[in-house]
Amino acid sequence: MSLSEAQVRHVARLARLALTDEEIDGLGAQLDDILSYAEKVGQVATVDVAPTSHPYPLANVAHVDEARPSLPREDALANAPRVEGNRFHVPRIVGEEQ
């Protein structure tokens, strides 16, 4: 298999990564190499094998249901690149072209 430039650009868009043309070029070949190697999993992963998502089986782990103080708002906002009032500031979203 081989990844086309258009496929690399599509994946970069899905990942929200702005890449330069040089990066797109380089990644196409590297992803090919890596994915060809990784595809080896298909040689042994037959339909009768169940997948393992986690090494240690734990299910429905929940906190004790009791009120605890949450992170103070000023602490939560302290690392934000831009803050307006008590909120994270982002560029306009509504009305963006999709």
Partner: peptide
């Protein structure tokens, strides 16, 4: 680029995010 770490500005939120991550 919203809650912590680097932000590189962009005209829309999506472009801001992509530029930041790039």
């Amino acid at each position: 680029g919203v809650r912590y770490g680097l932000r590189v500005d962009g005209p829309t939120t999506e472009e801001m995010m992509a530029a930041t991550r790039g």
